[in-house]
Deep mutational scan, measured.
Amino acid sequence: MSIQHFRVALIPFFAAFCLPVFAHPETLVKVKDAEDQLGARVGYIELDLNSGKILESFRPEERFPMMSTFKVLLCGAVLSRVDAGQEQLGRRIHYSQNDLVEYSPVTEKHLTDGMTVRELCSAAITMSDNTAANLLLTTIGGPKELTAFLHNMGDHVTRLDRWEPELNEAIPNDERDTTMPAAMATTLRKLLTGELLTLASRQQLIDWMEADKVAGPLLRSALPAGWFIADKSGASERGSRGIIAALGPDGKPSRIVVIYTTGSQATMDERNRQIAEIGASLIKHW
Rank of each mutant, 00 (worst) to 15 (best):
Q265L: 12
V31M: 02
D174Y: 02
A235V: 03
A280T: 09
P12R: 04
A235S: 10
R241A: 04
W163R: 07
S281A: 15
A183T: 08
P12A: 13
A200G: 15
I256V: 10
D174N: 03
R41Q: 08
E237G: 12
A276D: 07
F149I: 08
V214T: 07
E166Q: 10
P105L: 04
P25Q: 09
L79Y: 00
T193A: 13
I171M: 14
E210D: 04
H151A: 12
I206S: 13
D207Q: 11
P143L: 01
D99N: 11
P253S: 04
S96T: 13
A280V: 12
S96D: 15
T193V: 15
I206A: 09
N168G: 09
A15C: 15
Q265E: 14
M180R: 09
K32R: 08
I244N: 00
R241G: 06
L10P: 06
L89G: 03
T147Y: 05
R176T: 04
L79W: 00
H24M: 07
S2N: 08
V101I: 10
Q274E: 07
L38A: 04
L247S: 06
H110A: 06
I244A: 02
N272L: 01
D231S: 03
G52S: 03
D83G: 02
H24P: 09
A246S: 04
T147N: 04
T147G: 04
H94A: 11
L136R: 00
E46V: 09
R241Y: 02
S2I: 14
S2R: 11
L219G: 01
P181G: 00
L137P: 10
N168C: 04
E56R: 04
L136M: 07
G226T: 07
F17V: 11
S240V: 01
D177H: 01
K32E: 08
N130G: 03
A40S: 12
M184I: 08
L160M: 10
E277G: 09
R176G: 03
D250R: 09
M184L: 04
R91W: 02
E145L: 09
T112P: 11
E108R: 05
T267M: 07
K190G: 12
G154A: 03
L167T: 04
N134T: 01
M268T: 06
F58L: 07
L19T: 10
N98K: 15
E87I: 09
D212A: 01
S221Y: 06
E237H: 13
L38G: 05
H285A: 04
G251R: 08
A211T: 09
R118D: 09
R63S: 03
A123S: 09
L205V: 03
N168R: 03
T186G: 12
P143R: 01
W286G: 00
G85M: 09
N152S: 14
L73M: 08
P165T: 05
P20I: 01
G194A: 10
K252N: 10
W286E: 00
E87Y: 03
G251H: 10
A215G: 08
V82H: 05
Y95L: 05
G251Q: 08
R189A: 10
S221A: 09
A266N: 05
D212G: 04
V101S: 07
S122M: 15
G85Q: 13
G239K: 02
P165R: 03
V214L: 11
S240Y: 06
I243L: 08
G76S: 10
L38F: 09
A280D: 12
G194S: 13
F228L: 02
G90F: 13
M66C: 04
P181A: 03
E166I: 07
G242E: 00
D177E: 03
Q4S: 12
S68C: 00
A246V: 11
G239S: 05
T147S: 06
R59K: 05
K190V: 15
A222L: 04
A211K: 12
S254G: 11
E108V: 13
T193L: 13
I244H: 00
K232R: 02
T267C: 09
C18S: 11
P181S: 01
H5D: 07
L196C: 15
S254K: 09
A200T: 14
R238N: 15
L10A: 12
T179Q: 00
L89Y: 05
I243T: 01
G85T: 07
S68A: 00
D250C: 14
R91L: 03
N134A: 01
Q86T: 09
S240F: 04
M180E: 11
E61M: 15
A225R: 13
T158S: 09
H285S: 07
T193R: 09
E164K: 08
D83N: 02
L160F: 06
Q203D: 14
E119S: 07
D269A: 12
S264R: 05
G142V: 13
L135Q: 05
D212K: 03
R176P: 02
L150S: 05
L150Y: 03
S201N: 09
G85F: 08
A40G: 15
T262Q: 08
A16G: 15
L188V: 09
R189L: 11
D269R: 10
L55S: 03
T147K: 03
P12N: 13
L73R: 04
K213C: 12
L192I: 13
G251V: 04
K53I: 14
L188A: 03
D207N: 09
A225V: 13
E26R: 04
N168H: 04
G226L: 01
V258G: 01
T147E: 05
G194H: 08
L73Q: 02
E62D: 09
A182R: 15
A215R: 02
L247I: 14
A182M: 15
K190I: 09
P143T: 12
K32G: 05
Q86H: 13
S233C: 04
K30V: 07
G114D: 14
S2V: 09
L47S: 05
E237K: 15
P224I: 01
C121A: 07
M66G: 02
N152V: 13
K109W: 10
A132E: 00
T178S: 10
R118G: 15
D99Y: 06
V8R: 14
H151T: 12
D212R: 01
D161N: 04
I259M: 04
R271T: 09
D33Q: 15
T112M: 02
L197R: 01
I283T: 03
Q4H: 12
T187V: 03
L19R: 12
L218D: 02
T187A: 04
I275F: 13
E102R: 11
D250F: 11
R162E: 02
G239D: 02
T139R: 09
R81E: 05
P217L: 05
A225H: 14
P12C: 13
A222H: 10
I140V: 12
L247T: 14
S281L: 10
R91Q: 04
S254Q: 12
G90S: 14
E145R: 12
V29A: 15
N134Q: 01
A246E: 02
A185T: 08
T178H: 00
P165V: 06
G216L: 04
K213E: 10
T198P: 03
H24C: 05
A132S: 10
H285V: 03
T112Q: 01
